[in-house]
Design a protein around this nucleic acid. Structure first.
Lengths: 142, 142
DNA sequence: GGCAAAACTTGATTCATTCCAGAAGAGTGA
DNA sequence: TCACTCTTCTGGAATGAATCAAGTTTTGCC
């Protein structure tokens, strides 16, 4: 378990520290959480970790590609540990809930822009906007 | 020209005010600008407009669907006046430049999630990440 | 064990965005 | 055209996520 994260960290030549392991654990157990929640989760087990350390760790892990930062409009940054597969997200407009969505179309035609304006594109990010089941129910019952 | 914007505003039952017209003009002439730039552009013609008014107007116009807010990760909010067609954006990782991209695939298979988790999806937003021509050139020449 | 570099702690700061109270302006009916 | 009402705007202060800075601790390596 922990040694798994250790391996991941070493693989990208990052040192293995308690804050980093704690962040990785928190993200494994709670996908799509924002920075504040990560801090709270980490402190549940390691009360002395500073918020600055969490920001630092999140940035380091993101740069290293171990976690992914997602930031839908009008929301604070969220992170998830699932990387490598090109999956996407559905975001609820009303409550901000996020769920994973597999990339429907196999080799992903949507990942190729029609006219790239000379840009060298290396990733396509898709965000589906809508209403989650809970909010849809609320709206009807009101 | 101006009367065109006036019509748009009235169509969504928003009052026609100088700040609103100024913001719409600024966005027509400068697509993909951030809030600060909008404020600067508006003040070029109407020096007395407060920053709060611009924030207010941008929100009102966004809610009304006259403009669209785009907010790539690690960047401040940007706005564009092109709405209605489902076009997407290429964002340069290094300088933040944004360019429009037509939706390549006609009726857009990428707009349909494979498993929507019960979400009612009404929009799919695609962001292509990469390097713009200028930054690519810089990198090579260094 | 001991050393250098990387990472962490504490505390302050920045900056986009929002909140608030009062003033001004737009639309409406007489 | 004029007065009235409600929306919008002005100016200033406040919020909150994220970053910066200085000094201390820890990690990985010899």
């Amino acid at each position: 378990m922990t040694s798994d994260f250790e391996t991941q960290l070493r693989a990208v030549s990052l040192r293995v520290t308690r804050p980093r392991l704690a962040v990785l654990e928190a993200l494994r157990d709670h996908p799509h959480v924002d920075t504040d929640t990560v801090i709270a989760l980490v402190r549940a087990n390691h009360p002395t970790v500073s918020h600055q350390a969490v920001y630092d760790v999140l940035r380091a892990l993101t740069d290293a590609g171990l976690i992914r930062r997602i930031q839908p409009a009008r929301a604070t940054a969220r992170y998830e540990s699932r990387v490598g597969d090109n999956h996407h997200h559905v975001v609820c407009r009303s409550c901000g809930a996020i769920a994973d969505v597999e990339c429907a179309v196999g080799h992903a035609p949507c990942l190729t822009a029609s006219d790239d304006h000379g840009f060298v594109v290396d990733e396509a990010e898709v965000v589906y906007w809508g209403t989650c089941p809970d909010c849809a129910t609320d709206r009807i019952s009101q």
